[in-house]
């Protein structure tokens, strides 16, 4: 990793921390208010690509683990990695990786703007929603919470609408950043 890549990842980790400091945004038609932190994870993949995006999220989670209150609501420490939603947190790493991996391969410079936004959206939905919720549900079902697969699945559904809104924002932002300051390593 070059120094620039390391710095980009660290700066993005700082952005994810700041997004967690913002108060959650209530959206009219959705039962749970939206936290901007998981939006930051999708953005990391979309803006930085698989490798640097994953490193950004790893640094962010490391800060939380060593006792900095960087998670939304001022949470932090090792306790949050034992709590029921811990799977979603660990899932962030894979979410950023998959979002970035798909983004690197699907988005092309010569695509139309709308096509790029659609591609980023697909990447954010698969990585940021499917992968993250899969790991979150598995932890709820078989981790110390031991809720059972069906129940855990039921619980996760409440958060899906909010996450779809985030995927839309991530897609629009991903395309806007790519136009303004392209960083995504393009791959054939």
């Amino acid at each position: 990793m070059t120094t620039r890549d390391l710095v980009l990842a660290a700066l993005f980790a700082a952005i994810i921390v700041v997004l967690g400091l913002l108060p959650p945004i209530p959206v009219g038609f959705i039962p749970v208010p939206i936290h901007a932190q998981s939006l930051g994870v999708m953005l990391a993949g979309v803006v930085l690509g698989a490798k640097r995006g994953t490193v950004a999220v790893l640094i962010f989670l490391l800060l939380a683990a060593i006792g900095l209150p960087v998670l939304s609501g001022g949470r932090g420490g090792l306790g949050v990695f034992m709590a029921p939603p811990a799977g979603y947190l660990v899932g962030f790493v894979f979410a950023a990786f998959v979002t970035g991996w798909i983004s690197e391969r699907v988005i092309k410079r010569e695509q139309s703007g709308l096509g790029q936004i659609a591609s980023f959206f697909v990447a954010a939905v698969i990585g940021g929603i499917l992968v993250d919720h899969l790991i979150g549900v598995l932890w709820l079902a078989y981790g110390p919470t031991n809720l059972g697969l069906a129940n855990a699945f039921l619980g996760t559904l409440a958060f899906v609408p909010g996450d779809i809104v985030k995927a839309v924002v991530a897609a629009l932002a991903g395309r806007a950043v790519m136009v303004g300051y392209p960083l995504l390593p393009a791959r054939a």
Partner: peptide, 25 residues
């Protein structure tokens, strides 16, 4: 709006990366 806040925040922040990396090296 989340979008109009996030985009300039990301671009302005990441644009510093080159300077910071140069300083570290």
């Amino acid at each position: 709006r989340p979008l109009t806040l996030a985009v300039p925040l990301i671009i302005l922040t990441l644009k510093n990366a080159d300077d910071i990396a140069a300083a570290i090296d």
